[in-house]
């Protein structure tokens, strides 16, 4: 399976199609950090929100780069379950790269600042919470991108619709007065939680929520793939 993950990452990076989401991610981060300096944890919480659609889109591109017949060849070679897992793993690894860029980027452009007041978190705590926020968003974004991939949706238009609906839904349903916040992954609630002191039960709840959402979305991806060739 490692070999298939590497093959897919190589295909993604070599075609140059990796460029589009990378540029979109950098642009988004540039806009985000262009306004002024903020505390790291707070800034990273928003960064995870704005990167959620980028990570999902990147996953869709990575999975769609491979021709359909090549995907079937991979399935014949390693079996259906490992073929799917390898695609998700490759997308998660690519996503980790983007998350790494997102964590370093604000320090390069001076978008974040160290502790200034007595109640401020240390830089290490801020970066740690930022990493946590991005890692909550990543599995959900990978699952959304996978649900929007051609292997599931069959057509480009339908795939874009799934992607757009999922991304907009995550934002709209994540608003503080949302009627059904549980339908969306907790990217917005996480960002809100990071603006103030974060209690351990809240962090645990958000982590479980993100894991449950990703599990349901990945499960439906596996089920949709099973019922389609």
């Amino acid at each position: 399976m490692t070999a298939l993950v590497r093959l897919r990452l190589a295909g993604f990076l070599r075609t140059g199609r990796a460029l589009a989401p990378v540029l979109a991610g950098l642009l988004t981060l540039g806009v985000l950090y262009g306004g002024g300096r903020a505390q790291p944890a707070e800034a990273y919480g928003v960064s995870a929100v704005v990167l959620f659609p980028v990570l999902a889109w990147q996953t869709k591109i990575l999975l769609d780069v491979e021709p359909d017949v090549q995907r079937r060849l991979a399935q014949v070679a390693v079996g259906p379950a490992r073929e799917r897992a390898a695609g998700l793993l490759a997308a998660a690894l690519a996503g980790l790269g983007t998350v790494g860029v997102a964590l370093i980027f604000p320090w390069l452009v001076g978008g974040v600042t160290g502790p200034v007041g007595p109640g401020d978190r240390s830089i290490v705590a801020g970066v740690g919470l930022g990493l946590w926020a991005h890692l909550l968003a990543l599995p959900a974004a990978v699952a959304l991108g996978a649900l929007a991939s051609r292997a599931v949706t069959g057509s480009a238009g339908y795939g874009i619709a799934v992607l757009a609906l999922g991304a907009v839904g995550a934002l709209v349903l994540g608003l503080s007065d949302s009627v059904a916040p549980w339908l969306a992954p907790p990217v917005m609630p996480t960002a809100r939680a990071l603006t103030g002191p974060l209690a351990a039960p809240t962090a645990l709840l958000l982590s479980l929520w993100a894991a449950a959402w990703a599990a349901v979305a990945l499960g439906s991806y596996a089920w949709r793939r099973r019922s389609r060739a």
Binding site: L7, A10, P67
Partner: peptide, 27 residues
């Protein structure tokens, strides 16, 4: 081993790279 009707040639690899990768994918 499955030889599809049309080989999916739209991939950014050389023959050597592709066959090497497929060999490792096959275990």
């Amino acid at each position: 081993g499955w030889v599809p009707e049309r080989f999916p040639a739209d991939q950014p690899f050389t023959v050597d790279q592709y066959l090497g990768a497929m060999g490792r994918v096959a275990g």
